[in-house]
Design a protein around this nucleic acid. Structure first.
Length: 291
DNA sequence: AACCAGGCTCTCC
DNA sequence: GGAGAGCATGGT
């Protein structure tokens, strides 16, 4: 377990080795956050947190300390995960770069909506759309930390029209969102977590706008299936650059299987370190193959 | 000005 | 059931 102290509306993390809020939030797994002058702001469901980083500690001031203990997955010990993955040279580098990254346990609904919007999109635009969605349709909430807009509930989302989704900048995904929200009324997202991963993925894929890759993101980032490997353009680049022997593989299902064969139960973590690393340094060293 | 972004749906074979 | 075009939008 990580070293942390939980108090009313506050979590203090004393070991910064496995908790770096910039790497956690900026690594591409979450869209409902914002960098402010001296802290990061996070919304999940109707909960809210501000994360302050000091030289010797991190303080999470929040509406609900139990919620964010789970959200940041503080009970999981990352030293063994990092140690295990670091036997691979490329992973060792990626982990050194993204130190303190953690896979989050995000709210199901916000993760589904966020990753439907993510299709063929970029992270800044996704974040903007999600922020507008929150501010226009979420409940304005007053807390001791200040005012914030919660992420809309399913009921609140179900009144959003296609045109309104377009105005949030979601483009051609707008009708998919409206349809998926309608379909979600027949889903019990919490109850689905009892399903085995393959069955759960089959359920998610039935929703409009969710294909294999988006389903994998939902599995990894909100259902905590940390063996799942979402393969997007960046992970595809990583595979063809460092793992493929000679031929370039375009079939993402094959790439997914190959990564799983290498990293097995830790594939989700490995994928996330590599994604973050490649987005940062991908422009360099096209011929820098490893293993 | 083409090309890209955490891809998906729909059509056609 | 597998490949390919088309898809909104803003940044580079």
């Amino acid at each position: 377990m990580s070293d942390y102290i939980k108090e009313k509306n506050k979590i203090t993390i004393t070991n910064l080795e496995h908790f770096n809020i910039e790497h956690i939030l900026e690594c591409g797994q979450v869209f409902l956050f914002e960098k402010c002058e001296n802290y990061y702001e996070v919304v999940s469901g109707n909960e809210y947190a501000r994360i302050f980083t000091y030289p010797e500690k991190v303080e999470i001031l929040c509406t609900n300390e139990d919620y964010f203990e789970n959200y940041f997955d503080l009970k999981t010990d990352y030293s063994k995960i990092k140690q295990n993955l670091s036997t691979h040279l490329l992973l060792k580098q990626a982990i050194e770069y993204g130190y303190g990254m953690r896979i989050l346990k995000q709210g199901k609904l916000e993760t589904i909506i966020g990753f439907i919007i993510s299709a063929n999109n970029n992270i800044n635009r996704i974040k903007n759309s999600m922020k507008k969605l929150r501010e226009q349709f979420g409940t304005k909430t007053v807390s001791k930390l200040g005012e914030y807009y919660a992420f809309p509930t399913l009921d609140q989302l179900s009144v959003v029209s296609t045109e309104q989704f377009v105005s949030l900048g979601t483009g051609y995904r707008a009708p998919h969102l409206v349809k998926a929200i309608e379909q979600l009324k027949q889903f019990d997202l919490e109850q689905l977590s009892v399903l085995e991963t393959a069955n759960l993925k089959n359920k998610l894929i039935k929703l409009q706008g969710i294909g294999s890759k988006v389903a994998d993101c939902i599995l990894l980032f909100s259902y905590y299936r940390t063996d799942v490997v979402p393969v997007d353009t960046w992970v595809e680049k990583v595979y063809n650059k460092y793992f493929s022997q000679n031929n370039q593989i375009k079939n993402r299902e094959i790439i997914r299987e190959e990564f799983f064969n290498i990293f097995t139960k830790l594939s989700g973590y490995a994928q996330q370190y590599l994604f973050y690393y490649e987005r940062q340094f991908g422009k360099f060293n096209k011929n820098d193959k490893i293993g």
